[in-house]
Amino acid sequence: MKSFQLFLAVGTLSLFWCGVASAHDPVFSPGPHVLYKEGVEVHVGAHSEKAGQEKETELGLELTYGLTGDWAAGIELPYASVEDGADKSNGIGDLRLFTKYRFWRKDSLGRQESAAVLLNVMSANGDDQANPPLGSGTTDALLGFTYGYESLTWYRWTSIRYRHNGEKSGEDSSGLRRGDRWLVDLALGYRPTFPVYLKPDTVWILELNGEKGQRAELNGSTLANTGGSEWFISPGIFWTQRNFAVKAGVQLPIASDLNGNQAESDYRAKLEFEWHL
């Protein structure tokens, strides 16, 4: 049963990665920002989370390309380190492909309001036989909608995402399927000093992130100790200078309603660096 629980836990980290040109989007949730046409974004980041005895850290390299001024796509290559008590694994995690299309934009002096849809596909290349596993062993997809308002002083965003998890195949685990998951986010940003081009710029961000997961299934039967909901309050910072950005934040649990006997999240943290080339 423990291997089931570990399998079910894998994939949580991939929720961290919002995918696609996260410039001036919230730290833990997506916003509608994309990349300029023919632009390249190089993004490296470290994400960490702890829940009871489980501790996971993931390093990721993300490359994004601006297909048009409103449409971007990219790939993310993660390297994961997972600890569960005395057991440890390190290695390549599940590769992710993502795209975001900004379908609506309203510009005015010093303000931009926009909305976008996004799609992430998580492959099954990570080692799901490692102990603890490094990959989910399934191909999963995440579809989302996001809206954002940006001004020279205030920001606000909201997003909703749905993650569909595939069914695991293999001799020891056929018929096992992690529950699908809904994610909702609200975020507010504040820039304390007026921005000047080429000068350092700081935006403080506060997010409310909610997750609700369905129970996992094994050969059509639901597993008791799976699924449920968690809410986080997430302070963060976004610091930029010209084409370089640093983003950091921590997710702190404020409410938890997990089914059965499951370890509640202790914290999640994120640090990212981003270059626009």
Partner: peptide, 13 residues
Amino acid sequence: VDGLACPFCAYGI
């Protein structure tokens, strides 16, 4: 130019 709300985004221009 309308929509210019941050220096990081202006880099694209």
